[in-house]
Design a protein around this nucleic acid. Structure first.
Lengths: 215, 215
DNA sequence: GTCTATACTTTGATAGAC
DNA sequence: GTCTATCAAAGTATAGAC
């Protein structure tokens, strides 16, 4: 069963993968890129190992040298999609000065989120659209990633509340969910030659201004 | 090919279907209900005619008496999903008094939209999640439905602008898209025993207050 | 209207040559 | 590492009995 050195055993190394050097790493990157794209277009069941392989100029059997199964492949795609967005937002928040207001933190997180999902492209789209279709035991291994990111946004809003920046009527849980829903939906219509991310982020800032106490 | 009286030829009668009376109509309703649910859970390719039939206590072959193909079935589901939400919002807007402000119109449309997607349930979810996965020629026949509804929201915002209710910085196209994205994303997390629709709509009103000129 | 039976195609996955 | 060859399972759809 080829278990000795088969790299398929390490299909989920970490979100921060180094730039590939070996031949195997190059192939795996090209395969997972193609997979992300096709999973998004056709859904989990609609994606065939043959289609993914063909896209990269391989035969289906070659996929199995790098990924043990179709489930392994989708798990790698989804984990990367969710991990990269969360990482990007955390980095951007950490870069803010200590004395930043909650409002500034929200704006920074918004821009970082939008930037990241656009950069991640098919990976972010896959984690949004295909997540619900994967086998339940795969999904269970991934929900914690999603929940952790969702929790981060709640913390941002809670600190805004603690700082007295939020209006009393605002429900932080509800607001968090609505904001994330709106942010993620950008993926469904964003086009590189349309509105810039900065314009979109600015419009977000205008629209969500209703949550802040008026000064 | 059974074309003489096969009801499968009229798979898309209209969004406003009468309450079924004949045996065939009853079966078709139960089939399309089951199909909507399974399409949502497993995607287009992941939904099998067998699974749909089994859910209703039939054999797969029986589906083909009522729907000519899997494509016919998904088209019927998606058309109903999109049509019912648009209809509900139009009705709620028409019920407003002539002198209603744009703000009131937006709030009415918001509540009607939320109410409708929750009522439509799987049909609305399907038109949101599965639309991108259906064969291209099926999707082409459906996009006009989606576009018409999207256009309605733009008109609402444009009339708000004409009435001087919007802040100058608001981009009506962008705002329309963001609002619709946020509204639709409610489907992904709404649970009947959680927040009420009225609470959610109210939170929407608070959050989108940023688009209005301050009085 | 719904069934059983079945034709035909595609799929995920494995074995073993190179 | 990637290929060819192949298998068992599952899919859509049709034909014809009831």
């Amino acid at each position: 069963m080829n278990t000795t050195i088969n790299p398929a055993r390490t299909a989920l190394p970490s979100a921060a993968e180094q730039s590939p050097t070996t031949k195997a790493q190059v192939s795996r990157e090209r395969m997972i890129d193609a997979a992300a794209k096709i999973f998004v277009e056709r859904g989990y069941a609609g994606t065939t190992m043959r289609a993914v392989a063909t896209q990269v100029g391989f035969r289906a059997a070659s996929l199995y040298y790098h990924y043990r199964s179709k489930e392994d492949l989708i798990e790698a795609v989804l984990a990367r999609g969710m991990g990269s967005v969360a990482d990007a937002v955390r980095v951007s928040l950490a870069a803010l000065p200590q004395e930043a207001t909650a409002r500034e933190r929200i704006e920074a997180a918004t821009l970082a989120h939008l930037n990241s999902v656009v950069t991640s492209g098919d990976y972010a789209l896959a984690s949004r659209r295909v997540m619900v279709q994967v086998p339940i035991h795969v999904r269970r291994r991934l929900v914690s990633l999603r929940d952790a990111y969702s929790e981060l946004w709640l913390e941002i809003l809670e600190s805004a509340r603690a700082g007295g920046e939020l209006r009393d009527e605002v429900d932080t849980h509800l607001a968090r969910t609505i904001i994330l829903g709106a942010l993620n939906s950008v993926l469904d219509w964003y086009r590189p030659n349309g509105k810039t991310l900065r314009e979109i982020a600015e419009q977000f800032a205008i629209m969500t201004e209703g949550i802040f106490r008026r000064v």
